[in-house]
């Protein structure tokens, strides 16, 4: 298949309404199948309630918040994860069906299935043997 920028990550920050603190950018895997793309994003601490996945103007936005926060009586001793928000955005090509994106969340991993529109799927051509 020809190289296409099907799911191009977007430069973050510029278009963002300057958040007080930059959100964490979750690492992602993107895998292509005949039917569409599978996107996996590590967002530990995010729950279905604190997760937002939306497509706006061909841009896929992933946003989530760590639901669990220690109480006020807890003093941070050592911190590798700063902030509570995750954010990342991707531009979607016209070959994808934005209406039919499926999202599941398990153990802090978001899985998206982004189907290709029917006409973009590879068609299997049957080869018949001629006697």
């Amino acid at each position: 298949m020809a190289e296409r920028q099907e799911l191009a990550p977007r430069q973050e920050g510029r278009l963002e309404r300057t958040p007080r603190r930059r959100a964490m950018s979750p690492p992602v895997d993107v895998y292509e199948t005949d039917e569409g793309l599978i996107l996996l994003a590590d967002m530990p601490g995010v729950t279905p309630e604190s997760l937002e996945v939306k497509v706006e103007d061909n841009v896929l936005h992933l946003r989530g918040e760590i639901a669990e926060a220690p109480g006020e009586e807890v003093r941070p001793e050592y911190v590798e994860v700063r902030g509570r928000e995750y954010y990342r955005a991707f531009t979607l090509g016209p070959e994808f069906d934005q209406e039919k994106i499926e999202a599941t969340l398990k153990h802090g991993v978001l899985r998206l299935f982004i189907p290709k529109v029917e006409s973009e799927r590879p068609r299997r051509i049957e080869i018949r043997t001629v006697q």
């Binding site: 590590d42 967002m43 530990p44 601490g45 669990e68 220690p70 109480g71 009586e73 807890v74 003093r75 941070p76 001793e77 050592y78 911190v79 590798e80 994860v81 153990h107 802090g108 991993v109």
Partner: peptide, 16 residues
């Protein structure tokens, strides 16, 4: 992340 309160130590291991 590690946090500490008067009664306990809390360790958060981010292992998705």
């Amino acid at each position: 992340n590690v946090g500490e309160s008067a009664e306990e130590v809390l360790v958060y291991i981010f292992a998705p």
